[in-house]
């Protein structure tokens, strides 16, 4: 069950790479050996550390000016690859509450909504502006106002588009399972009707 999304003003860290995949966000070995809630140190592990295990100073999230970042600025197709929801958990454990990108992997984006992490889609030009802004500003504090679907960058208001239902669910921390269980009668009616027209679908043969 997700926590309600609260208004946020936090440091924005740029990660302007295309096709950031879920394997890089959380390597599979780590998600098997470590619990949800403790995945933060392994988020972006392949990029974040030097071979000797020390933080790679070249990696944006290791730069002192982006310390404590809660908003991440990605490129196109952020979160592509596997369906592992632990990619969202790892970002959450790292402290990230909002990812802004040109586009997202479909399953990753759905997983964000399930966990109260806000994915914001912006066009390439606005993203480029934000990236430059984040690089120049000390500190790059960005406001996220989900209620009004806008970002606030030092006086500039940047609107973004989000499904109203998704927005409500994030703002209220709604639980999908709880919501759907209210439709259980509809599901049972569907099954009854379907049994007459697609009996092979409603029971796996095995005979």
């Amino acid at each position: 069950m997700a926590q309600p999304f609260r208004p946020l003003t936090a440091i924005l860290a740029p990660l302007p790479r295309a096709n950031v995949d879920t394997e890089v966000i959380i390597p599979i070995g780590r998600l098997i050996s470590h619990r949800r809630g403790t995945l933060g140190p392994f988020c972006f592990e392949p990029w974040r550390y030097l071979p000797d295990g020390s933080p790679d100073p070249q990696f944006a999230l290791n730069e002192p000016r982006y310390a404590g970042a809660r908003i991440l600025l990605g490129g196109a197709n952020f979160g592509c690859g596997s369906s592992r929801e632990a990619a969202v958990w790892a970002l959450w454990d790292l402290g990230i509450r909002c990812v802004i990108a040109e586009s997202f992997g479909d399953i990753f984006r759905a997983n964000c909504f399930q966990n109260g992490l806000l994915p914001v889609t912006l066009d390439a030009a606005t993203l480029a502006w934000l990236t430059t802004w984040a690089g120049a500003r000390r500190p790059p504090l960005l406001g996220v106002d989900l209620q009004h679907s806008r970002l606030l960058a030092a006086g500039r208001s940047i609107p973004f588009v989000i499904d109203p239902e998704r927005r409500t669910a994030l703002l209220e921390g709604l639980d999908d399972i709880g919501l759907t269980l209210k439709s259980l009668a509809d599901i049972r009616t569907f099954i009854r009707r379907d049994l007459a027209t697609r009996p092979w679908a409603q029971s796996a043969g095995g005979g």
């Binding site: 369906s83 632990a86 759905a110 997983n111 399930q114 759907t180 269980l181 439709s183």
Partner: peptide, 30 residues
């Protein structure tokens, strides 16, 4: 698992889902 699209080779509508959705399907078959 994201490679659930495989089953589309038989003419099924098949797709990968996240952990929360797995739980949702277990509870509601929807």
């Amino acid at each position: 698992d994201s490679h659930t699209c495989t089953h589309g080779g038989l003419g099924a509508l098949a797709f990968g889902i996240g952990s929360s959705e797995v739980e949702h399907v277990l509870a509601t078959q929807s």
